[in-house]
């Protein structure tokens, strides 16, 4: 499927106490997903971050599928994470830099999951820092052609978030050889990449939360 889906969560903006309340997390996690939180995971990852990790995987999956099914509704518990694998010796560190851009995800760094929604099986890679977590979803378990970036911003105004994440992803596309790419949104709110007035069939996913923005796109999915 030609699509992309990512989601960034500012961990400094979440309400940890509320997230840990069953009435809150039960709207995000199924009982089976809650059982994924078992030893030794709790030693490295607080429960509230586990909840938001699964949220971001689910939201990314929703964005991946919604591009082709505009009427799709986001019901977190219906997007079910079946497997979750953390790298050996996983620890959470500070982000420390203003931005990161890369292609693919290193096995010793990224959290992997397999998720199901109805007939679909999707795969994710996630990164967790003390300040934020990021997830990206694909419909196969290879992310070698997935370009992504995370950037800190100094103004959390919605218009600035939107403009910054567009510029951030467009600059990357220019580095890759696109001369004058533009991102607009279609009637269903899905980002569409354009150049010279024509749509380029490269799916781009944009995300922002608080003082963080992130993009993901897959070049090899171009038609």
């Amino acid at each position: 499927m030609i699509s992309a889906g990512n989601d960034i969560v500012a961990l400094t903006a979440i309400n940890a106490a509320r997230t840990k309340q069953p009435e809150f997390y039960s709207k995000i996690l199924s009982p089976a997903e809650k059982s994924l939180y078992q030893a030794p995971l709790p030693e490295a990852v607080p429960f509230e971050i586990f909840v938001w990790l699964l949220w971001s995987v689910k939201e990314s999956a929703y964005k991946f599928l919604q591009r082709h099914n505009p009427a799709l509704l986001f019901t977190p518990v219906k997007f079910e994470v079946k497997e979750l694998h953390f790298p050996t010796g996983f620890t959470i560190n500070n982000f420390n830099v203003g931005e990161i851009e890369a292609v693919g995800f290193a096995d010793d760094f990224a959290i992997k999951s397999t998720l199901r929604f109805g007939e679909y099986t999707l795969y994710s890679r996630s990164l967790i820092y003390n300040e934020l977590l990021l997830s990206t979803v694909n419909d196969n378990d290879s992310f070698d052609d997935v370009y992504w970036g995370i950037k800190a911003i100094d103004n959390a105004d919605n218009e600035i978030q939107s403009a910054t994440v567009r510029d951030f992803s467009l600059n990357r596309l220019k580095e890759l050889g696109f001369k004058n790419p533009v991102i607009s949104k279609n009637g269903h709110g899905v980002p569409v990449l354009m150049e010279g007035g024509e749509e380029i069939k490269i799916p781009v996913s944009l995300s922002h939360h608080d003082y963080w923005v992130a993009y993901a796109f897959s070049l090899n999915k171009a038609e």
Binding site: D7, V9, A13, I14, N15, R18, E23, F24, K27, I28, W52, W55, E59, F74, P76, H208, H209, D210
Partner: peptide
């Protein structure tokens, strides 16, 4: 509204 706040609104 950020989607991360939708559960807050429901609660």
């Amino acid at each position: 509204i950020n989607s991360a706040n939708l559960v807050d609104i429901i609660i």
